[in-house]
């Protein structure tokens, strides 16, 4: 698998693999991230995993670019770790309840129309898949989950909505996600999750992290409202 290491500005380095994203690659990136936290403990201030990238942020001045580059290239040569299967042993998927109903999902019926599926089929296809968390970011607690069933793939809105409410379950291309807080957003909204995905004073604050497996479970309107009140 080929890879490249290059600068991300003056005090960060980015490792990118030229391979399609898959859980095994994410696990490799997670393993390199963990070793980097040990190896560069003095100088590493932050690190971010993307679909096929790991970016390491260093303290300016204390960062030896050549050393970081050589180290990253050596790590990239290590064999891929085994990826645990969802449901096997200790790896349990995170189950998130979702209300699929037009009252909370402005694009649900549109999606059924455009795909030629029934609303029930859309819900079934969205819930059947076990998703993998490839990256977090965009907003606190926002987690990019893949891969969506190809029958549900749609482009984003041309003009993003100014406000998507917290909990909105959304899809775009081959990805799905839950908006953890009110924010602008261009993804299609097909449901709502009553659970909080990001709580500032929890440890960790985010319910989901890179490498997690996630499944959605349909719930009734009554359950949605009682769960919303609790969270």
């Amino acid at each position: 698998m080929t890879c490249e290491v290059g600068p991300a500005g003056e005090s960060a380095m980015r490792l990118i693999f030229s391979a399609p994203p898959k859980p095994a690659l994410t696990h490799k990136l997670l393993a390199i991230q963990e070793s980097a936290q040990q190896y560069f403990s003095e100088t590493l201030i932050d690190s971010v995993i993307g679909y096929t990238t790991l970016t390491l942020f260093f303290t300016p001045f204390k960062f030896e670019r050549d050393r970081a580059e050589a180290w990253l290239l050596a790590q990239a040569d290590n064999p891929m770790p085994e990826t645990p299967e969802p449901g096997a042993g200790t790896v349990q998927p995170v189950i998130l309840p979702v209300l699929y109903h037009p009252s909370v999902a402005p694009d649900l019926e549109w999606l059924a129309d455009i795909t030629g599926l029934s609303v029930d089929d859309v819900i079934r296809l969205h819930c059947e898949q076990t998703y993998f968390a490839y990256a977090t970011g965009f907003a606190p607690g926002f987690c990019y989950l893949g891969n969506l069933d190809s029958r549900l793939m749609t482009p984003r809105l041309d003009t993003p909505r100014a406000k998507v409410p917290a909990g909105a379950v959304a899809i775009a291309d081959s990805q799905t996600a839950i908006y953890p807080c009110d924010s602008p957003g261009g993804w299609r909204l097909i449901g709502a999750c009553p659970e909080r995905l990001f709580t500032l004073d929890s440890t960790p604050p985010s319910r989901l992290s890179v490498g997690d497996f996630v499944r959605f479970e349909p719930i009734s309107e009554a359950d949605f409202h009682s769960m919303s009140r609790r969270s």
């Binding site: 993307g50 096929t52 970016t55």
Partner: peptide, 10 residues
């Protein structure tokens, strides 16, 4: 483009 980290000044 697959989502990846941004940085200051990007």
């Amino acid at each position: 483009l697959l989502s990846e980290a941004t940085c200051h000044g990007a």
